[in-house]
Design a protein around this nucleic acid. Sequence first.
DNA 1: CTTTTGGTTCTGAATTAAAAGAACTAAAAT
DNA 2: ATTTTAGTTCTTTTAATTCAGAACCAAAAG
Lengths: 158, 158
Amino acid sequence: MIELKAEQLEIIQKMSVFQVRAGMPPTEARILALLLVSDRTELTFDEIRETLNTSKSAVSTALNTLVLRNKVESITIPGDRKRYFKHQLKNWNSNAKDGLEKLLSVNQLLKEILAVRTSETEDFNQDLKNVIAFIDFMQVELVQVFEKWNKQQQKENN
Amino acid sequence: MIELKAEQLEIIQKMSVFQVRAGMPPTEARILALLLVSDRTELTFDEIRETLNTSKSAVSTALNTLVLRNKVESITIPGDRKRYFKHQLKNWNSNAKDGLEKLLSVNQLLKEILAVRTSETEDFNQDLKNVIAFIDFMQVELVQVFEKWNKQQQKENN
DNA sequence: CTTTTGGTTCTGAATTAAAAGAACTAAAAT
DNA sequence: ATTTTAGTTCTTTTAATTCAGAACCAAAAG
């Protein structure tokens, strides 16, 4: 059972509200937030369960999907039976990238729609073409932004 | 009642599955998709209700939230009592921008977390700083990307 | 003024999602 | 060999969404 200051509890609260709004299940959101604020960055299954006062089953499934989604890594320490769970901060970047790509993949459908539309509605079709062009543009630009970031990071590590 | 080809029905299906996965309620998703594929781009309440075979209450609440979220606009034609509903394609761009900004606003919370963290966990804190720096970077870059797009559009309209 | 139209709002009912609880399992410890 | 540990998986319960159906309402038409 991890002792948390009032501040830390508040942040867990705020952070998980935020993530839940974005579509994440509450237990997952609270685990992620706990792993961000906790003084120890590697917590056991039971520490998480006790601290968040949640059932084993809920913690188990939440942790498994978090590990699957590369949001959390599970660490085993030789000679210690328990697994330790740690927030995968390092993957934030690439998770963000994946998320954006998924958002932009709607463009495929928009192109299908354009192909099927009547040619009568010129203005509407032009607006649709603009949206498609915009998303295509974003896709290209975002790749460049990510590349720029990676280069900048490499420099700093010299 | 709008007549739809098989193709159009399929796209409504695919598109709404996509949007529902992203967290949108089914009726809203189907209305949006219908307004994208339909040959007529402005449909009445009852055309929507009949075509999607849905209850008045469901259509009413869905349309109202869609209008509220600037996804659909409602048009009134003088001398016609009915309202016509039309997909707000033009707002796609700014809706996307708002969505991204909201995503990036998580950074405020991450900064709070960093401020509250113990200084013992140097590596973790450094990773957290990197994430924060990354999001700050994205924020700046995205503004530029949007500006670039807008300029490019202005040019084309000359 | 009464009726019709074009919706809205207010219950439920049905579905879905999330969490709890309990039974289970594999590995490790005794 | 039995028990404990660390967690998983299955079933049930609870809670939240979503939709339908009916009553309702305001503006326009007759």
